[in-house]
Amino acid sequence: MGGDAYEEIRALKARYFRAIDTQDWALLRTLFTDDAVTDFRDSVSPRDEALLIRGADGFVASVSGALARARSAHHGHNPEITLTGSDTAEGIWAMDDYIWAGPACALPFGTLHGFGHYHELYVRQDGRWLIAETRLTRIRVETH
């Protein structure tokens, strides 16, 4: 795989984590294709069909609403990135996240520490790598 593409995709995912943790929703929106598919159905138990969202605007609205009055810290590790074409790639990232629900937060827990994987498809549009699909699966969730 081309080194530039690999580094650009790593930077894209780093911006994703930073945008969520700083609640920079405008930045988050710029990281996705307009028709992005975000699938977080298997990131909760029981599976929640409402967490399959088609369209970047819907995803940003959903995550910004869910994290209102909360704080988070996301970490991505050990990326496995494969270039599948001149302008396409796929990746798997090990991840862990912490979410602290604040007063009057709608989340059903006080704190969450999750472990899992992001499975993603990327496309390069107008010279920029973007997330076209992302799916989060969890292998463990600890809540208090």
Rank of each mutant, 00 (worst) to 15 (best):
G2N: 15
G3R: 13
D4V: 15
A5D: 12
Y6F: 14
E7I: 12
I9D: 00
R10A: 13
R10G: 13
A11K: 13
R15M: 10
Y16F: 11
Y16N: 00
R18S: 05
T22I: 03
W25A: 08
A26Y: 06
L27P: 07
L31W: 07
L31T: 09
D34L: 08
D35N: 08
D35A: 07
A36K: 00
A36E: 00
D39P: 09
D42H: 06
S45F: 12
P46R: 03
P46T: 04
E49L: 15
L52M: 12
I53V: 11
G58W: 07
A61H: 10
S64C: 04
S64H: 05
L67S: 01
R69S: 00
R71E: 13
S72M: 02
S72Q: 11
S72F: 09
A73T: 06
A73N: 11
G76K: 01
G76E: 01
G76M: 03
H77K: 02
P79Y: 04
P79Q: 12
E80W: 09
L83M: 14
L83T: 14
S86E: 15
S86L: 14
A89Y: 00
E90N: 14
G91C: 07
G91R: 06
G91E: 00
A94Q: 11
M95Y: 12
D96M: 07
D97N: 10
I99T: 08
W100C: 14
A101S: 10
A104C: 10
A106R: 07
L107M: 14
P108W: 06
G110R: 12
L112Q: 11
L112E: 12
L112T: 13
G116T: 06
H117A: 14
H117D: 06
H119K: 11
L121F: 12
Y122W: 11
Y122R: 09
Y122E: 06
Y122T: 11
R124C: 10
R124A: 05
R124W: 04
G127T: 03
R128M: 10
R128L: 08
R128F: 09
R128E: 13
W129K: 03
I131N: 08
A132F: 03
T134I: 13
T134C: 12
V141K: 07
T143R: 10
